[in-house]
Amino acid sequence: MASKERGTLLKEKHVRYIESLDKKQDTLEFWLTEHLRINGVYWGLNALCMLRSKDVFNREDLIKFVLGCYVESTGGFAAFPRHDAHLASTLSGIQLLKMYDAIDSLSKSQIDKCVNFIKSNQMKDGSFQGDRFGEVDTRFVYTAISSLSILERLTPEVVDPAVDFILRCYNFDGGFGLCPGAESHAAQVFTCLGTLAVVNRLQDLTKAQVDEIGWWLCERQVPEGGLNGRPSKLPDVCYSWWVLSSLSLIDRLEWIDFEKLRGFILDCQDEKRGGISDRPDNEVDVFHTVFGIAGLSLMGFEDLVPIDPTYCMTYDITNTIKKYPYN
């Protein structure tokens, strides 16, 4: 590690890296694969927003791509044109439009259909399936609720059962699992706390629960400085987002060591090509690039644009979302 230039975020290189992904559409490196393309574009744009380089992407082209992913028959967004709609890609699509202040490029009836698509995937117990194939996971509760929030179309009929479901996923150790009874995982903690934050229901957790959650989360930091997703697992840059955003939502951000985590993230940079990897010396990708930068932003390092831990978009964008409950 000694040869590495510690202590600087190579902003310019990361911007160039993200830009290069957009230009290498036919290579393997491009935005992972088609089935994650719209997510990848959101990750890229989100990183650029924090790096104050939003203009690197062409706004009109991007909106065109997003609208091309809208599935007229169902009302959801697919990861790529002509694929099936899914809740995960629907959130990315809505986020991208919101980031360009372009929600109104969807017609009123398209938005109505989208709202129906999201609601139609809610199950009796308040959970959501990702699509008609029935995978249920607290991730999809978050993607559904966050999407409806950005569209400003939340209702108690959707919110209340969703909150009940989330609270049932709380575990003995202070974490949350992907469904009731499933082991705690840091990414699930974010999706659960994020959902509660979106609908302004974090106060449903008791002070004792919040302390337990904070304890479990801060124990994710390992001596190398990075954060893991579960006990006895390796650290990984993406947990800089899942763990830190969660700590931030319960107002215990400083329960981990910022300098140590910062060092770990910066050690995962590719100094030649730009981009950030999951662990030092691994291949970089856009997913770990955005979440590494987001972690640094949450900790207030590197003069990045501040990111909202609830929505995973910068505050200048999320400030304009009408907050639930409405009126």
Partner: peptide, 10 residues
């Protein structure tokens, strides 16, 4: 356990 120092202070 300095990584979690602030929790203990809290």
């Amino acid at each position: 356990d300095p990584l979690r120092k602030n929790r203990y202070l809290c």
